[in-house]
Design a binder for these strands. Structure first.
Lengths: 343, 343
DNA sequence: ACGCTTTACTAAAGCGATTTACAAAACCAC
DNA sequence: GTGGTTTTGTAAATCGCTTTAGTAAAGCGT
């Protein structure tokens, strides 16, 4: 079994110099048909393919971008990453998807790969509060990073978020419109922008009807099914039970649904529920989950677009873009069984 | 803004040769404490990190593996890839996840990356019938490819599958045990091993009770929600309606559930349903989906394990390993409303 | 037939590491 | 103080490709 063919082998077989082969292949050299034909034939015969590392070392570009997601087995992130990847591939870039498991060390490792030239740019999707290290790395690589979905405080980079506050407001407003007043909220962790903003929207809607949420109405958890399932228990310990719950993400809503089932609480008969994300599967849940839909595709696509543009020389402007959200009505909201008369 | 530090910069600062730095960093050189301290200091001061492409070119290894999945936004593959990635990372390997969108050209492109030295090995998860090209590529890279979940006919490589036939049998048997006899099957595409085997199990169970399925009882689709939703229509056109359906995957079952809803058919009251995969979310569907659970974690883990072992010199043995499946009872199966007396 | 432009290439210098082969200095035994 | 060994390194080749700078030959106008 012979070694892989190099550009030298091709050159020899085509009776030209390696330079000629390289330049011809990369489109920088016009050659008479006879010569190109010989090169073409040699490439074909030897099944030549440039060595990726060598090519990249030489060019000083990796022609690849990285996408960091907290957890690739979370459907939301898988969708997001999938969309970003689709765009990158269409632009001729390789895509490396990393699952950080929400551990900052893993995220920092991705920045190392960026610095190491393994990738040209990074699409960062994080899920937790930064201790300053992420922001610092981002600052160190201007024009190489785009932030999606969740903020990194002090991270100077283009960013694409959704209208979290408005989404929280809409979700709560929707519940209020059905007659609810005792509306609890289980959302993402403290110190995380999206969680904070969604909770603000929830508070604002409640404030509009003169309701001040009691402290235990607000439960903090993570944006994943398992922690949410664990923490959702607290909701069912509130006395009197809330008549509705606004969950900070669909994964969190899944956790609430699991606990509701365990506590023999029927949704929406006993408690109404609104999620946030608008995952396609919501339609098929029992009951179908009403949710604030994010433009997941756009988020991934526009993030990747911006990153590629910057890599290819577009000016570095750390703009923050907000994308709209939309309430999608399904089956998890109904009027409350019995609602106290307002104080 | 200064250029990234190279090994030469470190060497200069530490007053030694680049060779010394390289060898010391890679553990090949014992140095007196004074010298190592200088190198350590220089590395720290310059925030030195070896250039990935250069290192890889030099070493002739990429220290990375690739994982090809049909669609990363499909939860089953996301879970599988996530688990394989976890293991690879734990072994110090980078992981590149590619979404092939089930297009063979995209899969072949991954083989090109393997040949190009961009990765050291490939974990192949495919979903469709091969036209011979995949098998050929696999053969050309012995010891570099491991196949998971779905066969590539003629692909000579270690492979990890599940007990598809037994799973199909169990699923159908479970329905039969509830009194069903008119059991339809909507499964994966023609020419795909898992689909074929699961259907065989279905036929065997039916044969045991003397039932020969009519041709229209067997619907072919793809293992994705959207095509399955489209094709599931055929099931609801069968007259008389089957009392139960065995879906070839949970995604397919989701499609069936969608159509059932549209046709006003209640699961499990009007029709019972069994899926295949055992996705965690099945618990939260309406109704919770009874399904044949695959050991997804094991599939990913053992595949990655084998691949890494081979990359590191373990002998190449193209063994096919079968992993067990297990029926998980949830809420989508009930006794039929009315069952015809046996012929 | 001379100079100028165009055509059709090539030599050689990188890219940033690793690795092999070798050497100066220090140490040690006798 | 001589020969051998160990310690502490280094010079230079190498990986496979790209790219800059340049040249020989052909074509062309006059």
């Amino acid at each position: 079994m012979s070694r892989k063919a190099t550009i030298g082998d091709v050159a020899k077989q085509a009776q030209v110099s390696p330079t000629a082969v390289s330049r011809w292949l990369n489109g920088g050299l016009e050659l008479p048909e006879a010569t190109s034909a010989r090169i073409r034939a040699a490439v074909k015969a030897l099944d030549y393919q440039p060595h990726a590392q060598a090519r990249r070392l030489s060019k000083g570009k990796a022609e690849a971008i990285g996408i960091v997601v907290p957890d690739i087995s979370n459907a939301f992130f898988a969708l997001l990453a999938g969309e970003a990847e689709r765009l990158a591939v269409a632009s001729g870039y390789d895509t490396v998807i990393w699952s950080s498991r929400n551990r900052i060390e893993r995220e920092l490792a991705c920045f190392d790969r960026l610095r190491a030239g393994y990738i040209d740019g990074l699409l960062l999707i994080t899920n937790h509060e930064d201790d300053g290290r992420l922001a610092e790395r981002i600052k160190a690589m201007p024009g190489r990073v785009v932030i999606i979905d969740e903020d990194v405080v002090g991270g100077v980079a283009p960013a694409f978020f959704v209208e979290n506050e408005f989404g929280g407001y809409e979700a709560t407003r929707h519940l209020i419109d059905h007659g609810h007043r005792r509306i609890a909220h289980i959302g993402g962790p403290r110190g995380v922008m999206s969680a904070h903003e969604r909770a603000l929207g929830w508070r604002r809607a409640l404030a509009e009807i003169g309701v001040t949420p009691e402290p235990q109405w607000h439960v903090f958890t993570e944006y994943e099914v398992e922690p949410a399932t664990r923490d959702a228990v607290q909701l069912f310990a509130i006395d009197p039970l809330p008549t509705a719950i606004f969950a900070g993400s669909d994964a969190v809503a899944l956790g609430v649904m699991t606990q509701a089932r365990r506590h023999n609480v029927a949704i929406p008969q006993d408690i109404s529920l609104v999620g946030f994300d608008g995952m396609p599967i919501n339609d098929l849940l029992g009951p179908p989950l009403t949710s604030i839909a994010q433009p997941i595709d756009d988020l991934g696509r526009r993030g990747a677009e911006r990153l590629l543009a910057m890599i290819n020389g577009a000016p570095f402007e750390p703009l923050r873009t907000r994308l709209p959200v939309e309430l999608v009505r399904r089956g998890s909201v109904a009027a409350p069984r019995v609602e106290k008369a307002p104080g």
